[in-house]
Each structure stands twice: as C-alpha cells, then as structure tokens.
Design a binder for these strands. Sequence first.
DNA 1: CGCTGAAATGGGAACGTTCCCATCCTAGTC
DNA 2: GACTAGGATGGGAACGTTCCCATTTCAGCG
Lengths: 339, 339
Amino acid sequence: MADSPRRATILEVARDAGVSKTSVSRYFSGERDRLSPDMQRRIASSAGRLGYRPNQMARGLKAGRSRLIGMLVADIRNPFSVAVMHGVEQACRAHGFSLMVCNTDNDPAQERDHLALLTAYRVEGLVVNVTGRPGHELEALAAQDTPLVLLDRALGDVEADMVGLDNDQAIDTALDHLRAQGYGELLCVSEPTEQASSRQQRLGRFRERLDADGLQGEACCLALDDAPALERAIAGFLDRPSHAPKALLCANGNVTLAVTRALQALDVTLGETGLLGIDELDWCALVAPGITTLAQPTEAIGRAAVDSLLQRLAAPERPAPSRQILFTPELNARGSTRR
Amino acid sequence: MADSPRRATILEVARDAGVSKTSVSRYFSGERDRLSPDMQRRIASSAGRLGYRPNQMARGLKAGRSRLIGMLVADIRNPFSVAVMHGVEQACRAHGFSLMVCNTDNDPAQERDHLALLTAYRVEGLVVNVTGRPGHELEALAAQDTPLVLLDRALGDVEADMVGLDNDQAIDTALDHLRAQGYGELLCVSEPTEQASSRQQRLGRFRERLDADGLQGEACCLALDDAPALERAIAGFLDRPSHAPKALLCANGNVTLAVTRALQALDVTLGETGLLGIDELDWCALVAPGITTLAQPTEAIGRAAVDSLLQRLAAPERPAPSRQILFTPELNARGSTRR
DNA sequence: CGCTGAAATGGGAACGTTCCCATCCTAGTC
DNA sequence: GACTAGGATGGGAACGTTCCCATTTCAGCG
C-alpha cells in the first residue's frame, strides 16, 4: 500500500496510466466529461494506486486563483467571533472555497503579519474583523482588487462592504425593553471604544436615546481585565440615590461576563437590578434568574459576509459602491430584567 | 500609490531595481546579509514602491515546503477546542509556521474533504482532533512522512503521537474529591463513546475505580441534543433510594452544560447533589454556588502538539516510536461539591 | 469519395519562485 | 605581480500545474 516516500505528481500518474498529463489534469479539474470512459477508468485507477493528490500550490500558481478566502479575527476566544466564523466557513465550503483563519489577539502587529501572510497566499477575498487600523495595508489590498468585507467593525478610512448588527436598533430594543420592565436609571458598560466602531455606535446611540427619551443614565468604558475598577464603577452607580429601579446594559458578550462576575462579587440580586447583555451566550440562561440578552444572528452574518465577497468576485469590472448589511437582533427576555 | 492592477512579481522588482531576480529572492528569504548595503537599499525601495509580496504559492511549489501546519478540529464551537487551537496557533507562529484550521462539525464526510484539502496544500504537519475514523487517509499521510499528532483522541489504527489529558488521573482526582466531600453514589454522564477514545478511557477508568473502591455508581452515555432523555436519566438516578449523598460527574464541557440545564429543569440544588465537570468554562464559577471543575491546561496541550510535530519534522530520518504526552488536570473546587 | 467539423487526446509554454552553478571582482598571500 | 580564496552577483533550470494549440480520428454529408 502506502509506500511512496514522496507525493506522486500528475506526470507520474499520466505515465502510469499511459495517457498525457493534460488528460489527467482534465480529470481532476472537473472536465471529466471530455474524457472517454475508458480513459477515466485508467486515470482513476492509477491515481488511486499512486495516492495522487493535486498540488494546490502548483494549481494556484498556474491558474492565478487560490480558491482561498482569508479571515482575520480579532479574538478567537470570543464565542461571537467563533459563531460568525462558523457561518463564514459553511458558506465558503458551499461555494468551493476554503477558509484560512488568522487570529490576531487584538494585536496590531499580529494583524499586520497575518495580513501579509494572507496576501502571500493570494487569498481571493478577505473577511476582516480587527481592532487596529491596518488601514493602509487593507487599502492597498482593496486597490489591488481583492474584495474585502468588514465584520462588525467599520474601519474609518477603508472603503469596503460592512456586515454586522444594526446597532441602533439593538440599543433601541434594549432600552425599550428595559423601560417597559420599569427600569428608569441605566448604566451602559462597554470596553474601550477607540478600536471598534460598533462599540462607538452602541454607546453613541445610547447617549442619543437618553437625551431624546428623558431617561436617566450614563455610560462607562473600561478595560475588562481590571475587575476591581469595574466593581467600583458598578458600585458607584448602584449606590447613587435614585427614585427608579436601576439596570445595567452590557455592550457585548465579554462585558456581560465581566459584569456578571462583578455583580456576584457585589452580591447584587439580578432582576431587582436589571441586567441586559448584547450577544447571546451558552450560559446566560443558566445564571440565577437567567440573563436577558440580545442575540445576534451570527451564522447569517457570516454567510452574508461571504456572499458579499463572492458577489464582488463575480463582477470585478463594476466596482459597486460599498454597502452595509445590517442584521436585526433578537431579544431573549429572562429573569434578569424582571422585577 | 496603489495602482497596479496585478500583484508585482519578483522579476518586476528586479528590473525596477536594476538587479537580478536572484538577489531579490535572497533579500526576501532571509539572506540579506549576503547582499551589499547598497543593493539592499535599492531592492527595499523598489519592492516598497511596487507593493511587492512574495507569492507563497510559487515559493511552496519550488521549495517543496509550505510552511503550513494543518489542524482538523471536530467542533469549533467547543471552547476547549478553541483554547487548544489558540495554543497551537501561538506555537506555530513562534516557529515561523502558519496554521490552517479546518472545522469538521463532527462529520466524517467533512473530515475526509478537509483532509484532502490540507493534503492538497501540502501541510508539513497535522494536528488532528476528529471524531470519525478517516483512519485510512491518515495512515496514508503518515506513511508519506507527514508528521501527525492526535489531540485528545487516539485513533485506534493510526500510529502517531498523542497529546491530551491524563484521563486516568482526571477520573481519580474527581472521584477522590467527590468522596472526600462525602458523596457516595455517583453517576458519570458522557456523550456516546464510539467516536472518541478519551471518552472511552474516562468511562473505563470510572468503572474500574468503582469496582476497586467499592463506591456505588453507574455510567450513562447519551447524545446531548435529546434534553428530555437526559433529564429522565438524571431523574432516575436521583430518585433511586440510597443511603449516601449523590453526585454527577460530567465527562466533558458539553456534558456539563447539558447536565446543568437538566438539573435546573429538575429544580435540583447544587451541592446537596454534587456536580463535577471535566473542562473549565467561563461560566462555571457563575452558576449558583459555582460548579466544581477539572481544568485542562489547554494552551500547554496546544503547544505540546506543535512541539511534537516540529520534533519529527526536524528528524525525519529516525522515526521515533510514537509517544503519548499527557497532562495533569487542575481541580477548581467550588460550591457544587460542597454539602 | 473527398470535405467539414466535432470529439478525444497530447505537447509545450507559461505561472513566480528557489537554488545550483557560474562569473566577476577584490584583497590577501608568497 | 601572478595566484587564490572568498564575497557579491547573475543566469537558467527546475517545481507541478493549467491552458492554448495542435493533431488525430471518425461520423456525416452532398
């Protein structure tokens, strides 16, 4: 059986089968119907015996297309990212592309490196969800006709399609729900916004709505790794005298996790103090009375990203104006917003 | 600025800089010190102006090495897998390799497909964590001198290094802890074991220890998507008359999630009924009195996998006998095992 | 019965690299 | 001052494909 120390080449298969390499190439590039049944049989048998696999490198080189989609993920350990990635992968697969994922750990240096890598592999399209501004490199890519789609975060200067949550609607839904449940004084917690446009947008809308609706509220941004600071911020908010029930709004899943920890440390009863998080997580239904969330349709977002890419790939001539594809969140009302 | 519709090639850079392509190649393959400072400057400038990036396809083709490590993951949405993957990625990066991850969704067909894909890209090593038995394909690969390392699950017939948790030790630690906390009657819940050796091993050890230690207990395997069945199984166990406190042992993170849901549905008080899960998850500290877990050192496992790969890659001559690298779990005692 | 055209097949030149082997130059040696 | 060793540089042949053009064969047809 398996014995050849080196991978067989198309030429060896051709020789073994007594046919030309062109025919073997045809066999493996989906042009089988151009081959006589007899030849197909011969090739199949030889290839099988030799354990031949087309070399994708050579293929990509010659044909100029890698059949590869690249994805840059800011944080692979974020379940939201993974869920979207899953959608992206499915869609790629469905269209005969493979996905090459790079995790950047929110590190601009890694973003640059990985971007170079994906470029080196000549990915035909790029799904980008990053923190920093590798704007320059991305612009260059875009200028070279590599389709680009931004995920969840717009990158100021880069002109490309963008797929993500309808943040305004999400905030509106959240506030409407909280108000309907009788909460009158709100604290919106977010990670620092400099790096991610969606955070800015959520916070911006939050402030807008407060003004417009005459709700009481404030926003705070802090790095999640400083648990004491977070506890202090929350305690400060809760201790303030007030005449309406208070609630916390978490701008994303990571925040929800950190805030939940902080609330437990502070011995706060959920529901009495409201809690609503953007992003649905496995465990939100499990904690205490259940944590109310706004779920993002992650798979759909992933698929939409790929669709957008493929569309541009199909019609490279007319560079359609860049679009925004926004999705509606779904409210999972649970005990944490029931008084 | 960015204008070239097509990527520049090494030849164009060479022409632009007035040097030979060989020199440009040297510049980009880490042989800069062989070039005079003047030449380095000229090349750098031309390459920068033209936006040149080495074509990894051509590189891989010619040099015969792709600088790529492949990883096959059974379930990308499992936090354990992701954590290990993170370790793998870091290690690859540290050694100048890139990682190509394929998620198989526990589907043998996808396993086969993705394996073919990775083969086509001529990955230099493969980290495998799969459910099915693409044994044949994997064997072929191994026979072709592609280093292979199995993650968490041994594949019966495939001879390769294996990295994972020390399952015997994990079960021992779990049982010792449960007994020390006064639980005397145990139910070990697992997903179906056919596909994953680690599950078999955990269950096997559990049964062994029961016999040896004279503990009361039983094991049950079921698919997690059938919540009612799980609830029935658990209710059955809890309703049985007994003279010692009862506890549940969850064989992995997914099980812990499902069991926790079931327990809530059954309105069981954690602690009174013990609960211990293998795999640490974000939320285990958050639920009720906290869920006791056995944490796997995921990053270390990932790194070990890559190390093992690289070791074999470095010495392809002497095919060292395949090893097992096992890691010790860490106990996080929490309220769910305190009576 | 020679002509046309389609279907089946094969030869060879790319694709963008790397790397082996020159070639050229300069400084050091006797 | 010829001789050499070694450093800097360049030319060209691969690597394993695809794809453009042949070339061959043969059925159909006026």
